[in-house]
Design a binder for these strands. Structure first.
Lengths: 172, 172
DNA sequence: AACAAGTGAGTGAGTGATCACTCATGTCTT
DNA sequence: AAGACATGAGTGATCACTCACTCACTTGTT
């Protein structure tokens, strides 16, 4: 059984992702979620509070996504997993990650870089494999992964599959 | 002498870039630009029309930015110029490019990929230099350039300078 | 040269619609 | 009965946009 509180959060997430935070009214969220508008403010104080709750969830989901890579002891495997990461995201979660990528451009949210733990792990991996500049290699690969993620979120993963193989060969 | 019409466009550009399209009211644009609110609608029919005018300018500026690279006959030089691109943008133009990067995530704008001409040129360059998979190399480098651009627009270019040198060595 | 007629940039009070948010009230569950 | 959950009409504020109007300036006529 999914609670009305969760229903509100999921609906807001979906609408914010596709149309943007300011463009979506609390009335529309309530209608689409099948609850009264007042209930939004009972559970999440304000519209901003609703967004904050989504951001908290975003942080948790990001950690969960990175966890298996961070914990991977084999540097080669860690790099392969990082490259595969954008392809592992199920399509039904696309709205969620789209919203995260949008939020990167909001002034008060860009500060804490969610990618940093992954970059650190990649840096460690390249270091283990005796790359000359592991830190720079890690930064570059993280840019590539982020770029591929962006493309996948916009156009789907199919067209990017061959690029994945190319990267795994290149870094393998 | 800068016309009021231009003043409106520049002010809207600045506010849209820093706070987002929907978050900025036409009243605030008028106040900051030092014109009446009505004038906005005389020159640009609607708020959406104002955004469209900015998008047209964006397309022109992007072409101008890529032009010297596209025209470069030496493939090595073309690649170096592409890598240097994010560092050549003057700080006063940051709001403009920030807005462009934000707009990438708006549903009706993401379709036409402004980067494609640059990717094609890079692909040609790698081909000239006998890379095995010039197309994929070009896609990857374009992701790196876009990632560096994003970082520079958010945090400034200083911290990225060493990465630029690293890339030029790598691809040189 | 003088003046009437016309043009369009520019104004700002005013419009209905919609915004985030409140609160008196109703309906469950125990 | 009582407290938590839930409602939706109502609130002032703000939204994008309109419109009647002014005024500096150009154009046509004599």
């Amino acid at each position: 059984m999914i609670s009305k509180k969760e229903k509100i959060l999921n609906t807001a997430l979906e609408l914010f992702a596709s149309e943007g935070y300011t463009a979506v009214s609390t009335r529309r969220i309530a209608e689409k979620a099948g609850v009264s508008e007042g209930l939004i403010f009972r559970h999440y104080k304000s519209k901003k509070g609703l967004l904050d709750a989504i951001k908290v969830q975003a942080g948790e989901r990001t950690i969960n996504l990175f966890a298996p890579i961070i914990l991977q002891a084999d540097p080669k495997k860690a790099i392969r997993m990082a490259i595969s990461l954008p392809f592992e995201i199920p399509a039904k979660e696309y709205p969620f990650w789209k919203l995260l990528f949008k939020l990167k451009w909001e002034t008060d949210y860009s500060e804490d870089n969610k990618m940093q733990p992954l970059i650190n792990k990649l840096s460690w991996s390249f270091s283990q494999l005796d790359y000359k500049s592991p830190k720079k290699e890690a930064e570059i690969l993280s840019h590539i992964i982020e770029g591929i993620s962006t493309t996948i979120l916009r156009d789907g993963k199919e067209a990017q599959m061959s690029l994945k193989q190319f990267l795994i060969r290149k870094y393998g």
